[in-house]
């Protein structure tokens, strides 16, 4: 065996051993692509199934979305219609608001003028009330004076009636005396006229009666069943339980005991009734 042959045998043996080791190492460490393929295939199948399921759900959801979209579109249309109506109503309401605002402004002006008018009327009312109060005070004073004058008038009328009665009585006495004188003188004495010693110049007049503070005089203003009202009140000095005497002319009618007293009038119950009192009868505290 030549040297070259030996070298070739050695090199080929070493190379083949090295190559076999490399092949074994590669084959032993290489991946199992079939198993990986099966795994990827099963994963792909599951993903396809999931994709199918998701596609089906997507289709269902899409159908639901379309249905919901249709409903929402209908509702949007309804809302749009309602919005249009509400817009019209809003415009009308704004127009009415402006109209009412104008009315309010006009009424505010009217109210302002009314307030001024009312203020003027209140001022004139106050002045009128003040004048009325003054007139009322004057009326009370005049009524009091009228009552006093009326009372003095009735008193004078009573005195005149008494004097008239005296005059009639004296005239009758005079006629009796003249008739007795004519009978005593006989036929010669007829036609004798007795002249009074004191010439009659005028009818005797009673002296004026001075009204004192305690002597109250008035008239009956109302007559009830058991109560009568008189024209005198607490302003004239009338007090409760005062006694008034009622006269009609010179005739005593009854007596009044005061039970209620007001400012300008009084009322009382009747006592010692001789006749029914009437409105206008004279009342006084003195006999």
């Amino acid at each position: 065996m030549s040297f070259f042959t030996k070298v070739l045998v050695v090199l080929m043996s070493l190379f083949s051993i090295f190559l076999c080791g490399a092949v074994v190492t590669y084959v032993g460490s290489v991946n199992n692509y079939r198993a990986m393929f099966d795994e990827q295939k099963s994963l792909n199948d599951s993903l396809v199934a999931e994709n199918t399921s998701l596609q089906r759900r997507f289709n269902e959801k899409t159908a639901l979305m379309k249905e919901l979209e249709v409903k929402l579109n209908d509702r949007i249309q309804l809302l749009e219609d309602e919005k249009s109506k509400l817009d019209v109503e809003l415009k009308n309401a704004r127009r009415l608001s402006l109209d009412y605002q104008g009315r309010v402004n006009s009424w505010a002006g009217v109210l302002t003028s009314f307030e001024k008018t009312i203020a003027n009327l209140e001022q004139s009312l106050n002045l009128t009330q003040e004048q009325l109060s003054n007139a009322h005070a004057d009326n009370i004073r005049d009524r009091k004076e009228l009552n006093e004058i009326t009372a003095s008038l009735y008193e004078k009328i009573v005195q005149m009636q008494a004097l008239e009665a005296d005059r009639r009585r004296l005239l009758e006495a005079k006629l009796d005396l003249e008739e007795q004188i004519n009978q005593l003188l006989g036929p010669e004495g007829e036609g004798v006229v007795i002249e009074p010693v004191t010439p009659e110049h005028d009818v005797a007049r009673p002296s004026s009666v001075t009204v004192v503070g305690a002597d109250l005089k008035g008239l009956i203003t109302e007559v009830g069943k058991s109560l009568v009202s008189i024209s005198l009140g607490s302003d004239d000095g009338v007090k409760k339980d005062m006694v008034f005497h009622v006269f009609r002319g010179d005739e005593f009618i009854c007596r009044i005991v005061i039970t209620n007293v007001d400012a300008s009038k009084a009322a009382g119950v009747l006592e010692l009734v001789q006749d029914s009192p009437r409105v206008g009868d004279f009342v006084t505290t003195r006999l």
Binding site: M1, K6, V9, V10, M12, S13, L14, S16, I17, C20, G21, V23, V24, V27, G28
Partner: peptide
């Protein structure tokens, strides 16, 4: 020389074992 014969036999065995291993794998 038996040395070279053994070397060739070893190489042949390695190749055969490798082929069997690859086939089984």
């Amino acid at each position: 020389n038996d040395l070279y014969t053994a070397l060739l036999a070893l190489a042949t065995f390695a190749v055969a074992a490798t082929a069997i291993f690859v086939a089984v794998k």
